[in-house]
Computed example of a mutant assay.
Amino acid sequence: MERSLRGFTGAGYDKGRPLAVRVAWFAVLHLVFVKWWFPARWRPAVLRAFGARVGRRVLIRHGVRVHWPWRLETGDDVWIGEGAWLLNLEPISIGSDVCVSQGALLCTGSHRRGSRTFEFDNGPIRLEPGAWVAARAVVLRGVTVGCGAVVGAAAVAHRDVRPGTLVVAGAVA
């Protein structure tokens, strides 16, 4: 198949907020939210101001990027490490007592491989209570990481991870 990216339409994808809100979020994200000097204790409040539902005692370190705050929900006692990227074109739900470590990527977006124009194939991500997404790990669209499961450092979770399971370097251990 010959791909034609010029024909991409993004049909059916709704960004969830008006352009002015999206522009305001990107300004806050890049000018303040990600900066090392911006207090971690203020980050949950900023996310809430843009529509996120953030639990209590949530720690968000510097360098964390959240694409659309209004598509983020966390439980209580969540840690999100430096440089993590929550690319949430669709909802990301993070249960209580979850750790998303440094440099991890939660990516709800993808494209239809068989689409000539590479249209979207997005899906939500759910991290159940007690899960851990370790440093530089990746969780892809449509995946649920079960209670107490671990996606190990640099591993990729491309399908659901059963509760208590360990995923290492793309394999289940």
Score class of each variant (00 low, 15 high):
W37D: 03
A49H: 02
G123A: 11
V28R: 01
R116A: 15
H30R: 15
L87P: 00
G12N: 06
T108V: 05
V28T: 12
G10W: 05
F118E: 12
G51E: 09
C99H: 07
G75E: 08
V34G: 01
F38S: 11
A40H: 12
G10L: 06
W70T: 02
R56Y: 00
G83R: 03
R56G: 13
W79D: 11
E73L: 02
V58T: 08
A52K: 05
A52T: 05
E73R: 15
D77A: 14
V98H: 12
R17F: 02
G83C: 01
A84Y: 04
G51D: 08
D76V: 13
R116S: 10
I92M: 08
L31G: 13
A84R: 02
V66R: 06
F118T: 04
I80F: 04
A84K: 05
F118N: 03
H30W: 15
E90N: 05
W37I: 13
R43V: 07
A49P: 00
A20F: 12
I80W: 03
G83D: 03
Q102D: 02
H30N: 15
L72T: 11
L72Q: 12
D14V: 06
G75D: 04
L72E: 09
F26R: 15
E73P: 02
S115H: 11
I94W: 10
R57D: 15
W85V: 15
L106P: 04
L29K: 09
A40C: 12
Q102N: 08
G103I: 00
R48E: 13
V64F: 06
W70I: 03
V98A: 09
S110L: 04
D97N: 14
R53I: 10
E82C: 02
L31H: 05
A104I: 03
V64N: 07
V54T: 04
N122G: 02
A24E: 06
L19H: 07
L127M: 13
L47G: 02
G109E: 11
E128S: 12
P124M: 12
V32E: 00
V21Y: 00
L106R: 09
V58W: 09
R126D: 01
W70L: 04
D77R: 15
L127A: 11
R43N: 06
C107S: 14
L106S: 03
W36S: 14
T108K: 07
V78P: 07
P91E: 08
W68N: 13
V58K: 06
G12S: 09
V32D: 00
W36H: 12
V46I: 13
L87Q: 05
G63V: 01
D121V: 01
S96A: 15
L106T: 06
V21M: 08
E128H: 14
A84G: 07
F26L: 14
I80R: 04
I92V: 14
H30S: 09
G114P: 01
I94H: 11
R53L: 07
I60D: 08
F33P: 07
S93F: 07
L59T: 11
R22F: 07
Y13K: 11
S93A: 14
K15D: 13
K15S: 13
S96T: 14
R56L: 06
A40F: 03
E90K: 14
W68T: 04
W68D: 11
G83A: 01
R71Y: 10
